[in-house]
Structure formats: structure tokens, C-alpha cells
């Protein structure tokens, strides 16, 4: 296995164009598990840890550009927690402190798991994913970027370089259910935001994220609407019936928080 370690974004994109089979690695909290469990043996790994442009976040004309290497710990503890409270709450639910120091939002989007904790809060903020290649960059709404279970819209030569959003400043929250009180993969999760409209997006309850919206005055029917929009399954982590029930309860509680 070759490890390619570019130090600039230009170099990273060139290497990805030359080696479209290379697997991008940032924090390694997904890919290293796959390697250690012998579930993946990529020919090449594109190590993005030395690419400075992929660190941190910037502001442009009222928009936020979260670089793909932004970690959960940085979101949880930094100044973003006031602007993106649901994303900060979601970050706190990810793994252990060690994992949160390593794991990144770019990795969460790249893995495209239905349980990805960053995805629902980004979706309710109508975030867009910046995909870059030597051919240029494009932006794809998060809900379109995830195309299925562990599938995304990235082209072979593209890298996830950032997430763009304009903070809505809407009251918002994130909740996640697991069988123990820390360090769990979501049995079901939910982000809800409320301004002129109600927006919700869930995790682990459908193959891909769905943004559920309703006028603000339809709060009473919103929990049912969210539960109906889900397509949960029975698996080792939970039952279809429980997931749908929990979505109703979580939406009711989330509305209590964000409409208070």
C-alpha cells in the first residue's frame, strides 16, 4: 500500500487525478478501522493531513466555509458552537474525546454512512459540499451529495474540500439515541431547526438524508411527518418500529426546545 502525502491542495488534487483509486484519509477514524478489520486494502492512500488548506474554517460574505479537515473537537469547543449549535451538539455525541480530536466532517461526508452524525445538522442548515478536482470545483447540497448507504456523489478524481453554509441562526438542536450513554453509533438521530419553517433531518432511519420541512404553524403534525418520511429497517442496532417511534418522540422534544 502506497501512502501519498501532498502538502498543498494543488498537489493533492493532482495526485487524486493521477490516482483516482487512492482512498483519501484525514482523521482515519473510519478508514483505519476498515484497514485494521481487514475490510479494505486500497492500493493507495491519499493522506490529506499535511494539506493546510483543508484545516479550520473561514468566512466569506456572511457564509461559512468549513474546510473538510475540521474536526469534531474544533466544532464542539470552538467559536462555531454558537453559530452552529446543532452541529456542535452532534459533534459532542461522536465517539470518545480521542475520536473527536481526529474525526473530521469531510470524513463523515466521504464515508456517507446513514449514521453520520454531522449530516443531519448540516442538512437542516442547507449546507453544500464543495467537491474539487483539477477540473475545478462544484457545490452539491448535502442531501444530494449522499446518494445512498455509504455512497456519495463524488467523482473519481474529486476530493471533498469544504462545506459551505450560511448560518440560519435558527434555534436548532441535535439528538442521538444509542444503547448506552456515550460512544455509540446512532440507532436513530435527529436534527431540527425552526425559523419561518420547520426543518428536520434524521440519521440511521433511511438510506440517505431527507430534509423534512413544514410551515412553522404546522408544528403539531410535524413529528408524524418526520416519522413518515423515514424508511428505517430492523438491524442489530435497533428495530424499524422503535426507530419510527423514537423519531416521533425526538421531534416532539426537539420542537419543545427550538420553539421555546
Amino acid at each position: 500500500m502506497d501512502v501519498l502525502t501532498p502538502t498543498t491542495l494543488v498537489e493533492a488534487l493532482r495526485l487524486k487525478a493521477e490516482h483516482p483509486d487512492a482512498w483519501a484519509i484525514q482523521g482515519g477514524t473510519d478508514l483505519m478501522v476498515a484497514l485494521n478489520f481487514d475490510r479494505a486494502r486500497p492500493e493507495r492512500v491519499l493522506n490529506l493531513n499535511e494539506v493546510r488548506e483543508l484545516r479550520g474554517f473561514t468566512r466569506q460574505n456572511g457564509s461559512l466555509r468549513l474546510a473538510s479537515g475540521l474536526t469534531y473537537a474544533e466544532i464542539e469547543h470552538g467559536e462555531l458552537r454558537d453559530e452552529l449549535p446543532a452541529l456542535a451538539e452532534a459533534s459532542r455525541t461522536v465517539g470518545s474525546p480521542q475520536i473527536r480530536n481526529r474525526g473530521t466532517i469531510g470524513g463523515n461526508l466521504g464515508t456517507a454512512s446513514p449514521a453520520g452524525d454531522a449530516i443531519p445538522p448540516l442538512a437542516v442548515e442547507r449546507a453544500e459540499v464543495e467537491c474539487a478536482s483539477v477540473r475545478g470545483t462544484r457545490r452539491v447540497p448535502v442531501t444530494d451529495f449522499i446518494t445512498g448507504v455509504k455512497r456519495n456523489a463524488l467523482e473519481q478524481d474529486e476530493l471533498i474540500t469544504a462545506v459551505w453554509l450560511s448560518p440560519s441562526r435558527a434555534p436548532q438542536t441535535f439528538m442521538k439515541i444509542g444503547p448506552r450513554n456515550a460512544m455509540v453509533i446512532a440507532v436513530v438521530s435527529l436534527a431540527v431547526a425552526a425559523d419561518d419553517e420547520l426543518r428536520a433531518c434524521f440519521g440511521s432511519a433511511a438510506p440517505r438524508p431527507v430534509l423534512v420541512t413544514a410551515p412553522r404553524d404546522e408544528a403539531s403534525s410535524f413529528p408524524e411527518r418526520v416519522a413518515e418520511a423515514a424508511a428505517p429497517i430492523d438491524d442489530v442496532r435497533g428495530s424499524e418500529r422503535y426507530r419510527r417511534h423514537a423519531l416521533r418522540v425526538l421531534t416532539e422534544r426537539a420542537l419543545k426546545r427550538v420553539l421555546a
Binding site: I177, R180, N181, A182, K256
Partner: peptide
């Protein structure tokens, strides 16, 4: 929330 059922998952402020 870490001292409530559901813990870090932030699922309740005391409801239920």
C-alpha cells in the same frame, strides 16, 4: 445531559 438517561445523546432535558 450526561447525567440523564440517553447521556451524551442529548435526548432529554428531563422529559419522560
Amino acid at each position: 445531559v450526561i447525567r440523564l438517561p440517553g447521556g451524551a445523546g442529548n435526548t432529554t432535558n428531563g422529559d419522560g
